[in-house]
Amino acid sequence: MVSINLGVLHYVLDHIYGTFLHRTKLGTPFFSKGWGGSKLDLLERMVKQLFPEAETQNWPPSIVKPVWRTVWETKTACLREGVFRTPCDEQLINALPPESRNARVALLAPKFVPPQKMACVVHLAGTGDHTFERRLRLGGPLLKENIATMVLESPFYGNRRPSLQRGAKLRCVSDLLLLGRVTIDESRSLLHWLEAEAGYGKTGICGLSMGGVHAAMVGSLHPTPIATLPFLAPHSAVVAFCEGVFQYCTAWEALREDAAQKAGMTLEQVRERLRSVLSLTDVTQFPVPKNPHAVIFVSATDDGYIPKHSVLELQRAWPGSEVRWVTGGHVSSFLLHNDAFRKAIVDALNRLEWKESLL
């Protein structure tokens, strides 16, 4: 009985947090400027290119050459920050706001350990994660396991946030697809840099919530086995914006008005159109990763944002992958279960072989 009550409490906490953050009039809702016009058409085409046959296309990706500066160092570890021009297709670069065209990345690594004897995991941003700090705190304790942490600043976030955007609330639906596609392209290039240039012996990709969806896509498309770790993540953005708490912070009326060329659209028809557009992010349509045993989902038992069925759909699509459940909701698990996330990272990397150069 106690566990049931606690489960209800965690679920209610997600909705209380969502109500305060998303249903009040204190902030701008998602997609307040509508669909994004011709940009949405472009992004729909560009996202479709990621689908099943795409994992062998455009590999190796465009090489990134970050310009590094040291932030701090101790006797055992070093934190560096790098900047690089996004390696995306020219059409994508032109679609990005100017503020998003240069990427920032942080790399926290042990000192005096050859990269060939280390692993490095790229950490992707969840909704609203504008800085490096939270992900660096997650990765910091892994230094003792010889696991480095690379943190990518997403387009539309942090220093890459457009001047007219308020917080994490993207102004157009096209921005969500653009954020995802650019994040995936940049992550693939960074993984290639870690493997081919820096020489790390193992690599992985992880992310929380939205970052977990992107991590799943990147892990799916990578041509060799890597650790893939979606945390508190759905199988598709449809779940977050059409089923979960985010539906209450979406500017449905603005989307209906922006679709005026389709005279007389009802709000229900608008919802169906958004569901159709966001179905492009359905990770179950992506290829099974090269080593599905190195895929570990960490999900919450009472998540008000991400229902269990969404997690299980992706696990079924990727036979051999593992789901681990933590007790709590989306918000409480984000705050309380970092140890479970770290253990999943260690375990997934342990299921990979070291590169042949170490044998």
Rank of each mutant, 00 (worst) to 15 (best):
D14F: 00
D14Y: 03
H15K: 15
I16R: 02
I16H: 02
Y17R: 01
Y17L: 00
Y17G: 01
G18V: 08
G18C: 10
T19W: 12
T19Y: 12
L21H: 04
H22P: 01
H22S: 02
H22N: 08
R23Q: 14
R23F: 15
T24W: 01
T24G: 14
T24L: 13
T24N: 06
K25P: 09
K25F: 06
K25G: 14
L26W: 09
L26H: 07
F30N: 14
F31S: 10
F31M: 12
S32E: 15
K33Q: 15
K33P: 00
G34E: 13
W35N: 05
W35D: 11
W35C: 06
G36C: 06
K39C: 00
L40P: 03
L42V: 02
L42T: 04
L42H: 01
L43I: 10
L43E: 06
R45P: 00
M46K: 11
M46Y: 00
M46A: 02
V47I: 07
K48W: 04
K48P: 00
Q49F: 03
Q49K: 14
L50K: 09
F51Q: 14
F51C: 04
F51T: 03
P52A: 07
P52Y: 06
P52H: 07
E53G: 13
A54W: 07
E55T: 01
E55N: 10
Q57D: 09
N58W: 09
N58V: 09
N58M: 10
P61M: 12
P61H: 12
S62Q: 11
S62R: 14
I63F: 12
I63G: 02
V64P: 15
V64H: 08
P66F: 04
V67H: 04
W68G: 00
R69E: 05
R69C: 03
T70R: 15
T70Q: 09
V71W: 02
W72I: 06
W72E: 02
W72M: 13
W72P: 02
E73N: 10
E73D: 03
E73V: 02
T74N: 07
T74V: 10
K75Y: 07
T76I: 10
T76F: 04
A77P: 01
L79C: 08
R80C: 06
E81I: 15
E81V: 15
G82H: 05
V83M: 10
V83E: 12
V83Q: 12
F84S: 04
R85I: 07
T86Q: 05
T86F: 03
P87C: 07
P87W: 04
C88A: 15
C88R: 02
D89T: 06
D89N: 13
E90H: 08
Q91E: 12
I93S: 00
